[in-house]
Nucleic acid binder design. Structure first.
Lengths: 251, 251
DNA sequence: CGGCAAATTGAGCATTGTCAATGTCTGTGG
DNA sequence: CCACAGACATTGACAATGCTCAATTTGCCG
């Protein structure tokens, strides 16, 4: 069955990988009120400390979440690709505990917090799909803790690349084995707990070792398996194999 | 109203801080089938790669989640205190993406995965409370990424202590401003992305600077505010102020 | 062509890790 | 009650991964 074209379609497709939905769930999701907006590069979607009034769904472009420590350094805690809810927290938590900012230019859909809550209340299957999504996000956070805490610079960066590539592939957003790296070296540094200077050197080393190819912002992966090994990357934590199951009616 | 004494009571109390429950929700929670078990120190509750058949609720003692990288180093990704669901993931995700292990001796309640699912399906308010719990866990994971990625050894360890103390206090498990540190220095190292040798030196430095007092495994905090400043600790991310709200009926 | 952000480079340094030895504590069995 | 084992904590000397600072180059865009 084909739904009418809607900006929300990619999100719907992603949710159905989390838990099965029925017709009324799909209709309700697509009937969600939203405001489309194009955001400039580096624009803030959410600021830490705010009481958000809306959830943000990423339609095109990339975005990231980050926290800032008292002494001013920044840690990126996740990267988001089109189809991701960038701020599902906003629907249920009162206060934003982190910032959300765009990488390049983005299109986003803002959905009022109360509309999300009404949807969740009326459609248990949608709620379950979103909860599963939250759980998978958690798993990714755990992997990031491990990445930053226990891998050396080379593996960390390789791991970041592996994760990004696999997520893009599974979301159907990769053309071939080349993709445009949406992040500056400083942002890679903030995601891996390194400095931009060191990221620069490690990227050069990875290229010299034939693990990546670089041309401006375009990165190619000549030998996926070698990169995977360098990263110690195993994609279990992304839960791509998770079987969509009906949790909302007695199991 | 007083519920009949049950091992599940502390969990119920914690959930009600996430979202309001009504009488039938409470009854269903307390009617959950479970198996009590005492676990030895360092016992595995869940192993990465398993297909879990039960959720684990911590009744007494402490436990932690960790991941192991290919080259064998360990990263602890969370610490759990009595009343915590240590593996809510197990109810909804098919494959465990991390290990769960006890710190000292523990009492746990194992709840069959299917019983959890049935509860969730029949009691939307319980599901919402648990989802909010998952979201708050996520927030803690994000803070840990930041801790490991962007703070120096001294702040990292101080931050770990601050978080632990505040969670214990809020759970009503702290007597005075002294508590027994349930972790070895090696475990602190694995939680902060350091080595046990360095943790040892930093703990000594913190003691010398008057930020902590140590006597065997007992740690005292003579000057909470100084420790908090050293850690750059701000407890927003723990969402203690989150107001329990009814999400399950139209907002 | 000018301006600005991002990338790159070099030199020196510091935080933290490694390795290996020694000290301390706790629980257990004789 | 003592001796011993084993786990944990502590120490020292040294190495190294990654950071700092500061300059320079490159690429992008109007």
């Amino acid at each position: 069955m084909t739904s009418p074209a809607s900006a929300l379609n990619p999100m719907l497709r992603k949710l159905e990988l989390r838990a099965p939905l029925d017709v009324s769930d799909r209709e309700a999701l697509l009937a969600l009120p939203y405001r489309l907006q194009t955001m400039e590069p580096a624009a803030y979607v959410v600021r830490e400390g705010e009481r958000p009034e809306r959830c943000c769904l990423l339609l095109s472009g990339f975005a990231y979440r980050h926290k800032v420590t008292v002494d001013g350094s920044r840690q990126i805690v996740s990267i988001h690709i089109p189809g991701d809810f960038v701020d599902l927290d906003a629907a249920l938590l009162d206060i934003a505990d982190h910032n959300v900012q765009t990488l390049g230019r983005c299109e986003v859909a803002f959905i009022p917090r109360l509309a999300m809550r009404a949807l969740i209340a009326a459609h248990p299957k949608v709620a379950m799909a979103m909860w599963v999504d939250t759980l998978i996000d958690s798993s990714i956070f755990r992997e990031w803790i491990t990445n930053v805490g226990r891998r050396d610079a080379r593996s960390r960066i390789a791991h970041l690349l592996c994760e990004f590539i696999r997520r893009m592939e599974v979301a159907g957003l990769m053309d071939d084995h080349h993709y445009e790296l949406p992040m500056t070296q400083e942002q890679i540094a903030d995601a891996t707990g390194l400095t931009s200077v060191h990221v620069n050197r490690v990227l050069q080393a990875l290229a010299k070792q034939g693990l990546i190819e670089r041309d401006k912002r375009i990165v190619g992966i000549p030998d996926w398996d070698a990169l995977r090994r360098a990263a110690g990357f195993s994609e279990t934590y992304l839960h791509f194999d998770q079987v969509p199951r009906d949790f909302a009616t007695a199991a």
